[in-house]
Amino acid sequence: MIPAAFEYHRPKDVGGVIALLQQHGDEARVVAGGHSLIPMMKLRMTDVQHLVDLQDVAGLGGIQVAGEQITIGAMVTQHMLINNADLTEAAPILKEAALQIADPQVRYMGTIGGNVANGDPGNDMPALMLCLGATYTLTGPNGTRKVAARDFYEAAYVTVREDSELLTQLTFAAPKGGYAYEKQKRKIGDYATAAAAVQIAREGGLCVAASVSMTNLSDVPVWSKAAGAALVGTDCGPAAIRAAVDAALKDINPTEDNRGPVEFKRHVAKTVIGRAIARAWSRS
């Protein structure tokens, strides 16, 4: 658990970061909270010659809740998400999910930007962002572009972000209605065996909008359009939930690991998604 030698950079602004990324190409990696990258370096499973620390970079922090629009800087920690009253008021699912990430020590360091940008299918925030229909802002040598979270993930650890781009912020519309992030894990600090994020809007006795996404059930976070569609127009009763769960299960492709075989994961996914929908509906 001793990393190989590397150069350490601590730029002050986004321009400085981009310049370093351009200069060193795939030999450079940015580090935010470090909870994914540092262990990989210590295990010598990733070769980072130039480590670009974002801690001093201006303009990457802050949580803004402006009317319907929520903007979160990439360097906002899980701890900050949990303790921001405006955010919890506007989008309580973030707090519910962030509280299920590891432990307080990790949450003091771990950032939302690192969590979504790394492309680790085990991370919780990507599925959440898919559920919320968030947009990521990427800044690179040619300026800034926006990418829908639902278009961002291509494969495990592979995203549409270019090597010389930095994910700087996340934006999404304040969600309406009930919410739930339901996660099964073996223990504190573990990735999900299966997890589901659900937002449901209700008018009268019927569901008018629903979004369902899942963590660690494929090599990318999964947003199930069909699952949401199966709930719209229903009372989210047992039959509707069953239909939504069946639809969601068609969109996942879990693999066997120490958490269990595929058949088990599909069964847990079924249970977890069903519970998330029921809880979100009960809060809607």
Binding site: Q184, R186, T193, R259, G260, P261, E263, F264, H267, V268
Partner: peptide, 9 residues
């Protein structure tokens, strides 16, 4: 979890 699930299964 999965071994208990396997029992039930």
């Amino acid at each position: 979890h999965w071994r208990i699930w396997r029992i039930a299964h």
